[in-house]
Simulated scan of single mutants.
Amino acid sequence: MTVSACSSDSQKKGAGVSAGHLCDASFDSHATAAVKKISGVTSFEELAGKNKYGEPNRFSLTRAHKHLGTSLSPRTQCTVYKVSDESGYPFLQIDFKKLTYTPKREVQEKQSGLQKDVFYPIGTRAWTGKEYATSLYFPCKAVEGKGAKPFVHVAMYSATNQMTSTSTSKERMTILNSVSREFAKELGCLDEARLPARLPAPSK
């Protein structure tokens, strides 16, 4: 997925907030530290105003739950910008959706080729790939039905010029794991999601 620039600066909030307030306060202390490290800044903002559906652009776990479907939707995205950045490109964009298939690591490994993806033993499948792509799948029986399998896919992307040179796979997955845990709580399936409070070492 390619992250595109925001089309209007008026959609962005003027005053910045700390990392702990982003994405409906879904970043825990470990994720907050990771955000600061890979961004190189301490002040951020989300989209302001309302979307075409008349709902706030600012992300909400409750709204993401309400609108969770099997395709990507602007109503299930958390888009974060650096206050100091004038490019219009987001620092992070996190998407949530249901799955129409069962995720399998061996399929991902075959597709990866020489991309050197890094896998983590959390959820059903979790990995970081090239160009700052980060994905996590977790089981959740509550979302099954109407063509959807009992799994949720949470994916995070960033424009290539938004990460610091010290950004690592661990920080990116730490952020995504934290957000996924909070979303699993919202869905009522944290106990089955297999998302630990602390990120374990990558799989061998």
Score class of each variant (00 low, 15 high):
Ala126Ile: 07
Ala126Ser: 11
Ala126Thr: 09
Trp127Cys: 08
Trp127Gly: 06
Thr128Phe: 01
Thr128Ile: 10
Thr128Tyr: 03
Gly129Glu: 01
Gly129Val: 02
Gly129Met: 02
Gly129Trp: 00
Lys130Gly: 03
Lys130Phe: 07
Glu131Cys: 07
Glu131Met: 11
Glu131Val: 09
Glu131His: 13
Tyr132Gly: 01
Tyr132Ser: 07
Ala133Ser: 15
Ala133Thr: 15
Ala133Glu: 15
Ala133Gln: 15
Ala133Asn: 15
Ala133Met: 15
Ala133Arg: 14
Thr134Gln: 03
Thr134Arg: 06
Thr134Cys: 06
Ser135Cys: 12
Ser135Phe: 06
Ser135Asp: 11
Ser135Met: 14
Leu136Gly: 01
Leu136Pro: 03
Leu136Glu: 07
Leu136Gln: 04
Tyr137Gly: 06
Phe138Cys: 01
Phe138Lys: 05
Phe138Gln: 02
Pro139Asp: 12
Cys140Asp: 04
Cys140Gln: 09
Cys140Leu: 04
Cys140Lys: 11
Cys140Ile: 05
Cys140Tyr: 03
Lys141Tyr: 04
Ala142Thr: 12
Val143Ser: 09
Val143Gly: 04
Val143Cys: 10
Val143Arg: 02
Glu144Phe: 04
Glu144Pro: 03
Gly145Ala: 08
Gly145Phe: 04
Lys146Met: 11
Lys146Glu: 14
Lys146Trp: 07
Lys146Cys: 11
Gly147Phe: 07
Gly147Gln: 05
Gly147Thr: 06
Ala148Gly: 03
Ala148Glu: 06
Lys149Gln: 13
Lys149Leu: 13
Pro150Asp: 01
Pro150Val: 00
Pro150His: 03
Pro150Trp: 02
Phe151Ser: 08
Phe151Gly: 05
Phe151Asn: 08
Phe151Ile: 07
Phe151Leu: 06
Phe151Cys: 09
Val152Lys: 02
Val152Phe: 00
Val152Glu: 01
His153Glu: 15
His153Ser: 15
Val154Asp: 05
Val154Ala: 08
Val154Lys: 04
Ala155Met: 13
Ala155Ser: 14
Met156Gln: 03
Met156Asp: 00
Met156Arg: 01
Tyr157Gln: 10
Tyr157Pro: 04
Tyr157Arg: 14
Ser158Cys: 00
Ser158Val: 00
Ser158Ile: 00
Ala159Trp: 10
Ala159Glu: 09
Thr160Ala: 08
Thr160Trp: 01
Thr160Phe: 01
Gln162Pro: 11
Gln162Lys: 06
Gln162Gly: 02
Gln162His: 03
Met163Asn: 10
Met163Glu: 06
Met163Pro: 10
Thr164Glu: 03
Thr164Gly: 03
Thr164Ala: 06
Thr164Arg: 07
Ser165Gly: 09
Thr166His: 13
Thr166Tyr: 13
Thr166Ala: 14
Thr166Ser: 15
Thr166Trp: 13
Thr166Met: 11
Ser167Pro: 02
Ser167Lys: 13
Ser167Thr: 15
Ser167Leu: 08
Ser167Cys: 13
Thr168Met: 08
